[in-house]
Amino acid sequence: MPTNDAWGQGISLWSLTDAPDIPSAVGALGSGVIPRSIMRFASAAARSAAIDSPAEGMTVWLISEGRQEVYHSGSWIPVQPIPVQAEQVSDAPYNVTGTTVDYSSSAWPRPQFVAPPSGRAIVTVSAALANTNTDTSTIWAAWRAIGSLGYAFVDLNKTGLSAQAKRVVASRRYMLTGMTPGETITIVPQWNISSGTSSTASTFGGVLLVEPSS
């Protein structure tokens, strides 16, 4: 009877004591090797049509999407993390003080990404900001993270840029951890001013860059 391979991969190999049957021997080898190789498909839709029940660790290359994905914990996840970026379109209204407020999605789009197998991603916020209402008035540009499976992170002191009165141009990086692989994460840009209005506060050139980490 066929025996398993010596590397514990569950691939059936025809043995010398088996009755000669070349088609069955080749078929058993192919059935064992192909699902464990990097399979190629024209698109994600073609892959779904070909693989009804993916197995943990299956790896494929999607030609139209131009990326490699692995099946992990019930989801197809990019093997090489794909950076995403969202640029600020318009400024905040600055109509409240002392409160951290989400930018509208039209003023600053919210980048989304799929958490990689590591469950980690680096988020960088960059902007030019100022609040000239008084010599001590502050302005913040920051972000928070929310996930499709319940993940949440918010900490102004770790994710935010800040300026006091005069203009500051800066960036800040922070690594998110503990995300569930395959979870869809949304980064929500935020603003905060201590005093003043839109006539004294401004943020422009804002960029949010997300780099999923392997």
Rank of each mutant, 00 (worst) to 15 (best):
A28W: 07
S24M: 09
L29N: 05
S199F: 02
F113S: 06
A50D: 05
G119A: 12
V84H: 02
A121N: 03
A55P: 00
L149E: 14
S162F: 01
I63D: 12
H72K: 12
T99D: 10
S53P: 00
I82L: 14
A201F: 03
M175G: 03
A46Q: 02
I77R: 11
V123H: 02
D21C: 09
R144L: 07
G57D: 07
A115K: 04
S75N: 13
R172S: 09
V210T: 08
W140Y: 15
E87I: 14
P116E: 07
R47P: 01
V79L: 15
S213E: 13
T17R: 11
P117K: 15
G206A: 14
R144D: 08
F153S: 05
P116Y: 06
E56L: 05
S171D: 12
A44V: 02
A163V: 06
V33P: 04
S15D: 12
T97N: 14
E56I: 02
Y94Q: 03
D135T: 15
T200D: 12
V114I: 15
N95A: 15
A128V: 04
S64Y: 00
E69R: 06
S24D: 12
P117S: 12
T177Y: 10
Q190K: 15
T97W: 04
I82G: 04
T186D: 03
G32V: 13
R167M: 09
S195T: 10
W7S: 11
A6M: 08
P181C: 08
D5P: 09
A25N: 06
A92M: 10
R172T: 13
V114E: 10
P83E: 08
T17P: 00
R40H: 08
T197W: 03
D155S: 10
T138Q: 13
D52F: 08
S198P: 01
S43Q: 06
T197N: 11
T59Y: 01
S24K: 14
L16I: 10
I63E: 14
S106Q: 11
D102A: 13
V169C: 01
L129I: 11
N131D: 10
G196N: 08
S90W: 05
Q9K: 13
S171V: 04
T203N: 07
E211F: 01
P212T: 03
V169A: 14
G74Q: 08
N192T: 07
T100S: 09
S15P: 00
I187L: 07
R36H: 06
T186Y: 01
V125P: 00
A127F: 03
A128R: 12
S53Y: 08
L176P: 03
S118G: 06
Q112D: 02
L29A: 12
A25V: 03
S104K: 05
S24Y: 00
I22T: 13
K166G: 09
A92T: 01
P93E: 11
Y103S: 06
G98D: 08
S15L: 09
R173S: 15
A107N: 12
S53C: 01
I38K: 11
A142R: 07
R67Y: 07
R167S: 12
V123I: 15
W61Q: 09
A92W: 03
T186I: 11
T138Y: 01
E183S: 08
L176M: 08
